[in-house]
Design a protein around this nucleic acid. Structure first.
Lengths: 221, 221
DNA sequence: TCCCAAACTTGCGTGCCACGCAATTTTTTG
DNA sequence: CAAAAAATTGCGTGGCACGCAAGTTTGGGA
């Protein structure tokens, strides 16, 4: 038997969290291996051994369940940020807290990245994915506001929002490009943000032919 | 009869655009006055005088129809951006192009803002709303890439993405706060972005009591 | 230890929705 | 003006979200 179950939370709470986690995990796994359109809510529920009706007590759609991992992973970010040393400049804290979250998971293999790419191809998931990030963004904004004094809420939201922008751009690049790693790119983007947008303006030169096809491809996130 | 119908587009094209516009408009209007849950796809279709099945040829959900205005409004942004004088620094161009889009519509009255607030309260709309912004973001990134040389695509996406962040934050503030105008706030946020995030770090002081409830409220977008 | 209230699960029923398909009508084009 | 191309429509199907009203499990005081 495990040494300590750490029953800080009531049994009920633990069961709920566990059920939720199991459902989210099953939803993600099934979707990765079959594609979203071949996963019915019933399948997910069965996988976990729970009634379909119960699934809807936790998530209001299968898309939401699939994207739950995004929300959940970032819950830890609040703690990470609040745990930074008090004297540290705000931006340092935020940057480290964010990078920390994505350091936990090592770089996965090619096959996995490919499956993620397929996953993100599913139109129906985009909305939910973005909503998940918006939730994170909200938490981040609140946490920033909590950590700092004398900054108005608009700016907190702007900071949180643009940080999440960087995360999403880095993420898309990660599963889109063949082989580029997530963390270095994310760190670079955060630094660019910090430096201010005109930093990008270095290459201000207008293209000779503005009709050049620039092929960023389809909307990806 | 109108002097010139400007039939640059084939009749078919015009009809399609018109139908789409009508559907989107009806969807938005009905939703504003009844709330999304009291609007069936059938209602929207009837309003326009078209079969429910046809509605789904244009939009794959009523949420998408309601949010179409976001996508459509920004189609003009591409042209606005490409129309900026060639010598102008990139950031100036982007800023003006964006602000221009939101200048067209004057500040609406209180009642309207209130209805928008209710609209955005609808959970089911958030995902679509964000997807719409993601589409705009994509267009913006491509247009930026088209306009400028020597900037890599990652940075174009980052710029587009953080600009949209500012837009969303300003927008949320607009319908959330009682009375603050959209444009001045948006302009200010864009300037903050340009100045770089550490600019916000002025008030780095850690709050004495990090448990203070900061009440940014529920996720709003 | 026992018991009750609160919380969670479940089955059922309802209304709505997205979409494939094939028939029909409208627009284009040669 | 006729045939091809494209849009609209009705129908049918499978699926989904959620209200409601049982049943079942959990928590905490007496």
């Amino acid at each position: 038997m495990p040494p300590e179950e750490l029953p800080k939370l009531t049994l009920r709470e633990r069961k709920k969290r566990e059920a939720r986690r199991a459902l989210a995990q099953a939803a993600l796994r099934l979707t990765l291996e079959r594609g979203l359109e071949n996963v019915r809510v019933e399948d997910i529920a069965n996988e976990v051994g729970v009634s379909p009706r119960t699934f809807n007590n936790y998530f209001s759609s299968k898309e939401q369940a699939v994207c739950a991992v995004v929300v959940d992973r970032h819950e830890g970010m609040r703690e990470a940020l609040l745990a930074r040393p008090p004297g540290e400049p705000l931006w340092e804290s935020v940057k480290h807290a964010v990078l920390e979250q994505y350091s936990r998971e090592g770089e996965p293999d090619r096959a996995y990245v490919a499956r993620i790419r397929e996953l993100m191809g599913q139109l129906a998931l985009r909305g939910e994915f973005l909503r998940a990030h918006a939730t994170v963004e909200q938490v981040l904004a609140e946490t920033i506001a909590k950590r700092v004094a004398g900054v108005d809420h608009l700016l907190c939201r702007l900071m949180a929002s643009s940080v999440e922008s960087a995360v999403r751009v880095a993420f898309v690049n990660w599963f889109t490009s063949e082989g580029e790693q997530l963390l270095p790119v994310l760190e670079r983007l955060l630094d660019e943000l910090a430096a201010g947008i005109p930093g990008l303006t270095g290459g201000t030169a207008v293209k000779s032919d503005p009709n050049t096809t620039t092929a960023l491809g389809e909307p990806l996130c």
